[in-house]
Computed example of a mutant assay.
Amino acid sequence: MQIDLNGEGIATGAGTLAELLCERCFDADSVATALDGVFVPRPLRAVTPLHPGARVEVLSPMQGG
Results as ranks from 00 to 15, higher is better:
62 M>F: 14
4 D>W: 02
50 L>V: 07
41 P>Y: 01
31 V>K: 15
11 A>K: 06
26 F>P: 06
12 T>M: 14
41 P>K: 11
65 G>L: 07
64 G>D: 04
41 P>S: 03
64 G>T: 00
50 L>M: 06
16 T>L: 05
19 E>I: 05
30 S>Y: 05
36 D>H: 11
42 R>E: 10
51 H>K: 08
23 E>R: 07
57 E>F: 00
7 G>A: 06
52 P>E: 09
26 F>G: 08
39 F>P: 06
35 L>I: 12
45 R>E: 04
60 S>H: 15
19 E>F: 00
7 G>K: 07
37 G>R: 04
44 L>V: 03
59 L>C: 14
26 F>Y: 15
33 T>Y: 02
30 S>Q: 09
62 M>Y: 13
37 G>C: 08
2 Q>I: 00
32 A>N: 14
32 A>G: 14
10 I>Q: 11
63 Q>L: 08
28 A>F: 00
9 G>P: 01
47 V>M: 05
37 G>L: 00
25 C>E: 09
48 T>Y: 04
63 Q>S: 14
25 C>K: 14
26 F>K: 13
18 A>F: 00
35 L>A: 08
34 A>K: 03
63 Q>M: 11
49 P>N: 15
31 V>C: 12
17 L>W: 10
31 V>Q: 15
5 L>C: 01
33 T>I: 05
22 C>Q: 03
2 Q>L: 06
55 R>V: 04
65 G>H: 11
11 A>W: 03
37 G>N: 09
46 A>M: 03
11 A>I: 00
48 T>I: 14
64 G>N: 08
58 V>Y: 14
16 T>V: 10
46 A>K: 13
60 S>W: 09
60 S>R: 15
56 V>D: 13
30 S>N: 12
42 R>G: 10
41 P>V: 10
40 V>A: 09
12 T>N: 13
50 L>I: 08
51 H>R: 07
8 E>G: 01
60 S>G: 06
60 S>T: 11
21 L>Y: 06
30 S>M: 12
56 V>F: 14
33 T>C: 12
58 V>Q: 13
63 Q>K: 12
64 G>H: 05
18 A>N: 07
49 P>H: 13
59 L>E: 11
12 T>H: 08
64 G>Y: 09
27 D>I: 03
62 M>N: 01
47 V>W: 00
40 V>Q: 07
23 E>Y: 04
34 A>H: 03
5 L>W: 00
23 E>V: 00
19 E>W: 02
15 G>Y: 02
56 V>C: 11
58 V>F: 07
31 V>H: 10
58 V>M: 12
23 E>M: 07
46 A>G: 12
61 P>I: 09
30 S>E: 04
22 C>L: 03
61 P>K: 07
60 S>A: 14
30 S>V: 08
17 L>R: 11
55 R>D: 11
60 S>I: 03
10 I>D: 12
25 C>I: 05
16 T>W: 00
60 S>M: 12
49 P>G: 15
4 D>K: 11
6 N>W: 01
56 V>W: 03
41 P>W: 02
